[in-house]
Simulated scan of single mutants.
Amino acid sequence: MGKLMGFLKNVVSEMNKVSWPKRKELTRYTIVVLSTVVFMAVYFGLLDLGISQVIEWYVAL
């Protein structure tokens, strides 16, 4: 039990050393991540649609 308490104290100590982002930085990072995810989803969706159309056209021959 002593090792567990020591570990938890070390965890709390290290978490206090972490440099957490400010609200403005966090908002900016969140917008960047969400816009990247949306862009990639649209890109791969269109790519998939295009490949599907090419395969359907090829199979119809």
Rank of each mutant, 00 (worst) to 15 (best):
F7G: 04
F7L: 13
L8K: 10
L8G: 04
N10A: 06
N10M: 12
V11C: 03
V12H: 04
V12G: 00
S13W: 03
S13E: 01
S13N: 07
E14C: 05
E14D: 11
E14L: 11
E14K: 15
E14P: 10
M15L: 13
M15K: 02
N16G: 14
N16T: 14
K17G: 04
K17R: 11
K17A: 06
K17L: 09
V18Q: 08
V18T: 08
S19W: 00
W20F: 15
W20Y: 15
W20K: 14
P21F: 06
K22R: 09
K22A: 09
R23T: 10
K24C: 00
E25F: 05
E25S: 11
E25T: 12
E25C: 09
L26G: 04
L26M: 01
L26Y: 03
L26D: 05
T27D: 05
T27K: 12
T27F: 10
R28D: 04
R28P: 08
Y29E: 14
T30D: 02
T30Y: 05
T30G: 13
T30M: 07
T30Q: 08
T30R: 10
I31R: 03
I31V: 12
L34I: 13
L34T: 13
L34W: 07
S35V: 14
T36D: 01
T36R: 03
T36F: 02
V37G: 02
V37T: 15
V37H: 10
V37P: 12
V37W: 04
V38W: 07
F39S: 06
M40S: 12
M40A: 15
A41S: 10
A41T: 13
A41F: 02
A41Y: 05
A41E: 02
V42Y: 06
V42K: 01
Y43H: 07
Y43R: 13
Y43P: 08
F44H: 12
F44C: 09
F44M: 13
G45F: 12
G45L: 03
L47C: 00
L47H: 01
D48K: 14
D48W: 14
L49T: 07
L49K: 10
G50K: 03
G50P: 02
I51G: 00
I51A: 05
I51C: 02
S52W: 00
S52G: 11
S52M: 02
S52Q: 05
Q53V: 07
V54L: 14
V54F: 07
V54C: 00
V54Y: 07
I55V: 11
E56R: 11
W57S: 13
W57C: 02
W57A: 15
Y58Q: 08
Y58R: 11
Y58L: 14
Y58T: 14
V59R: 02
V59P: 00
V59C: 01
